[in-house]
Design a binder for these strands. Structure first.
Lengths: 250, 250
DNA sequence: CGAGTCTTTGATTAGGATCAATTGCTGTGG
DNA sequence: CCACAGCAATTGATCCTAATCAAAGACTCG
């Protein structure tokens, strides 16, 4: 068929390295959290962060674990999902570099509500909630940056609520694809579209849109037949942004 | 019928007053934003806040207005809803005393995404985004408190996303009623339940749960027949928390 | 009392979920 | 290198939840 190909164009990322101290400092400095700090201050920050690598599919933490760490993705992607008894997971975030997950503030005995899984091989810097809280108090600009990040997340969440409340599935799928292409678009697969640069199963898409695998598959087949997207096992690429936007707008 | 009554037990609140300066200071001090500040600091804060009263139904701001003010409810309730072209509004928040709305940070030319309407007569303290930003920088504890508030909102939003993605309507309605009773429960109407202390139309409930008025009405009728709630025009009271919780848990 | 709004109830429809196979891709091991 | 195991994706058939369409009842207020 015109819009089908057989091999996922997604190059897989691997990162089996260990950060040196100065590297760690540099990475943290690139992060929106700590962008405002100078070299000396970054040293202080770097001291409380530890680096860990995960291979694709590895579990970072599970819902129910004590909520005591804040983590920042520095390479690769991490999938945050809320599990439910009957296996109907909800995908709350697909985080790329410089995005955070875990607990920002809660020092008490709160439990994690979500699973965090390495969606690709990835590298994560993390610290315990207590140390992070100390950083917030010590460096006011960090608190402000954090506030901005959380506020942005809240806005995204509210947009998602709006979508789930009122849009039919094809519209939600279109909007989700566009958002992903925007955030993770590795431009151009060989058919001149914007390839979503992350392994993306139908199940993932279903968990993001609150639909079922089957429905998502049907919707994508339809979009593909119309030439709006290309898709295959674990990948999607946007080929006709205009049309998708029209659907996403209603 | 056993569970019907004719008059809404909701007492309407009225507040046609004007805060004196010390009153304003005291109110701000009770707010989670500024609880950590001392009297002198509160004076400074109070200077940039102005008080406004609204009568029930009055519009505070509309989606599309420039996003330039942060407001804190000090009495009454404010309804935050996201309008959509086809009138399918989404109710994002029903705010009571000490909850905030408006823009925390965006100093640019951002536009409000939501309508804010006085849901009851209410009293609001507000300031412009710029002044608030200055307060955040001047008083680090305020930034931390704000961060905690926004993080809490984010958690609520994620819970809502989970519900909308996977729960059927009766479950969402039950969960919503319990949450409202928790937050706004004026205990005891004359039938020994927990009355939700706010005017609450079926439409509001529909906008909160992403369902239609008709469906909500049917669900409530069902709950009422089972004796789990009492309800009437613009009010609901929870009479059998246990059973509702069972539904809300699935 | 009568207009207007909110609520309830019924009948019908449709969007998606569910159930059930089948096909196709990938990586593995003989 | 090919066969096969295993998972991902597709497609079809059916069912069901909730939306839609339509109307009538209830409460409120001027």
């Amino acid at each position: 068929m015109s819009t089908r190909r057989r091999s996922p164009v997604t190059p897989v990322r691997v990162e089996p390295h260990r950060c040196t101290a100065p590297e760690k400092r540099r990475l943290l400095g690139t992060t929106p959290f700590f962008a405002a700090l100078d070299a000396r201050q970054l040293d202080e920050v770097a001291e409380v962060f530890v680096q860990r690598n995960f291979t694709a599919g590895e579990t970072i933490h599970r819902a129910g674990d004590p909520a005591e760490r804040l983590s920042i993705v520095v390479a690769g992607q991490v999938k945050i999902s809320r599990p439910s008894v009957d296996g109907q997971d909800v995908l709350l975030g697909l985080l790329g570099p410089y995005e955070h997950f875990g607990s920002l503030l809660e020092l008490g005995d709160a439990a994690c509500r979500d699973d965090a899984v390495a969606h690709s091989d990835c590298c994560v810097l993390s610290t315990d909630a207590e140390s992070f809280h100390a950083l917030l108090e010590r460096f006011p600009p960090v608190a402000l940056a954090t506030l901005a990040l959380v506020a942005a997340r809240l806005r995204e969440a509210q947009a998602t609520i709006e979508q789930l409340s009122t849009y039919p599935v094809p519209r939600r799928v279109a909007a989700t694809l566009l958002a992903l292409a925007e955030r993770l678009g590795a431009d151009d697969d060989d058919a001149g579209g914007v390839l979503i640069g992350v392994a993306l199963s139908r199940q993932d898409l279903a968990d993001m849109t609150g639909a079922t695998v089957e429905t998502v598959s049907r919707v994508l087949s339809d979009f593909r037949r119309r030439g709006w997207i290309g898709s295959g096992r674990q990948w999607v690429s946007v080929r006709d942004r205009e049309s998708l936007e029209a659907i996403a707008r209603g």
